[in-house]
Amino acid sequence: MRKPLVEIKNLKKYYPIKKGLLKRTVNHVKAVDGLDFSIYKGETLGLVGESGCGKSTTGRTILQLLKPTDGEVLYEGQNLVRMPGRELRKLRKDLQMVFQDPYASLDPRLTVGQIIAEPMEIHRLYSGKEKDKRVEELLEVVGLNSYHAKRFPHEFSGGQRQRIGIARALALEPKLIVADEPVSALDVSIQSQVINLLQDLQGKFGLTYLFIAHDLSVVKHISDRVGVMYLGRLVELADKDNLYAEPLHPYTKALLSAVPIPDPLAKRERIVLQGDVPSPANPPAGCAFHPRCSECMEICRKQRPAWKEINGHYVACHLYN
């Protein structure tokens, strides 16, 4: 049995809503509301869902860029949530992130060489000529040239900037990289280049990815397993082939029905969801998806469905309880 690199247990992230002169907390935005899943060494776990479902918050909370409201994040058996700051800082080099926006995630005042070298200086891994050599190696690994180290971010295209962000993430030789929609801001032709680069780097360095995206075609291409989120909760998690071939949850079926088919003659029944996504500040009772679900039952309105395994396929739906 494989041992997970990262285990997430009952992870929650709530943001307080304050009102009045005294700024009393009157409610909470439940961005992440009780997640349980694992990420295994060397795999790519895709995380998909509509905008605002909590995907990016999940990634940032796992890396402790945001402190969770409740729950545990176990990295190689160590609970990052309760870890003192000094010990957590030592582990930072194993846990890196590629951000969504390649324009905003790079400091415009620094050269590319300084941006990539900064993590090495903070963790005191390289210095002097060794550091410069390492920067040049990383630039070449991600498909750029060593002379690019002297240029500034504004001199590069979006795809090149994302490559720089990937090089920065690789600088400390991490074990886990959280890729937060790393291709959503790029042209389609550039997306494939970055995806192929991530796959090549995974094979070369033995990386583990949490790949966050909303493009289901991209997720299928790069992921080993796929988790589907809705309103801060996981509704389904399975091997990508099983999930795309036989989705169990009504929400997953609706998402997959919207994926374009490259064959113009092929036909697929389009499942159109009615209504809007409920507010995470006031989620529905029971199953969060029930106001939009065509298969809603009375129990769905009252009771939150259990997270259940069906032959390695995890789903939270009363249809299978």
Score class of each variant (00 low, 15 high):
238 A>Y: 09
217 S>C: 02
145 N>F: 07
213 A>E: 09
90 K>F: 02
109 R>L: 09
134 R>N: 03
290 H>I: 10
101 D>Y: 03
167 A>F: 10
166 I>D: 00
73 V>R: 10
53 C>Q: 04
202 Q>G: 05
5 L>C: 05
70 D>Q: 15
266 A>C: 08
126 Y>A: 14
100 Q>T: 05
229 M>I: 07
172 L>Y: 09
270 R>A: 01
55 K>Y: 05
206 G>Y: 10
276 D>I: 09
85 G>A: 14
9 K>G: 02
179 A>H: 09
170 L>C: 04
12 K>C: 15
263 D>W: 11
132 D>S: 14
234 L>I: 14
39 I>C: 03
272 V>L: 05
50 E>H: 06
122 I>S: 04
167 A>N: 06
221 H>N: 13
199 Q>N: 14
10 N>K: 15
35 L>W: 02
78 Q>M: 14
250 P>N: 11
110 L>R: 02
245 A>I: 00
245 A>D: 15
178 V>R: 01
189 S>F: 08
220 K>R: 15
287 C>T: 13
89 R>M: 13
120 M>K: 04
152 F>I: 00
16 P>A: 02
119 P>H: 12
60 R>Y: 13
171 A>H: 11
222 I>T: 10
34 G>T: 11
317 C>E: 13
96 Q>C: 08
24 R>M: 12
238 A>F: 10
113 G>R: 04
18 K>T: 15
161 R>Q: 07
261 I>R: 13
240 K>H: 05
262 P>D: 07
263 D>S: 14
291 P>L: 13
25 T>G: 07
74 L>S: 06
245 A>S: 15
87 E>S: 12
19 K>G: 00
158 G>D: 08
64 Q>S: 08
218 V>H: 05
301 R>H: 14
202 Q>T: 04
155 E>D: 11
267 K>N: 07
113 G>C: 08
297 M>T: 13
190 I>G: 12
316 A>W: 06
157 S>Y: 07
257 S>E: 10
103 Y>Q: 09
312 G>I: 12
310 I>C: 02
236 E>P: 13
116 I>Y: 03
160 Q>D: 08
216 L>N: 12
59 G>K: 01
96 Q>V: 08
141 V>S: 07
301 R>M: 10
291 P>W: 12
157 S>E: 12
176 L>Q: 01
191 Q>M: 10
318 H>P: 12
96 Q>E: 11
295 E>Y: 14
85 G>K: 15
207 L>P: 04
81 V>D: 06
275 G>Q: 07
261 I>H: 14
124 R>Q: 15
158 G>K: 02
213 A>I: 10
130 E>C: 01
28 H>I: 00
142 V>Q: 01
231 L>T: 07
79 N>P: 10
211 F>T: 06
192 S>I: 13
193 Q>C: 03
260 P>D: 11
134 R>P: 08
163 R>H: 03
314 Y>Q: 13
134 R>T: 08
77 G>T: 12
217 S>K: 09
111 T>S: 13
91 L>F: 03
265 L>I: 02
290 H>P: 06
266 A>R: 14
36 D>R: 01
37 F>W: 09
214 H>W: 12
292 R>Y: 12
286 G>A: 07
12 K>W: 02
91 L>R: 15
28 H>L: 05
106 L>I: 00
188 V>M: 12
208 T>I: 10
310 I>P: 01
51 S>R: 08
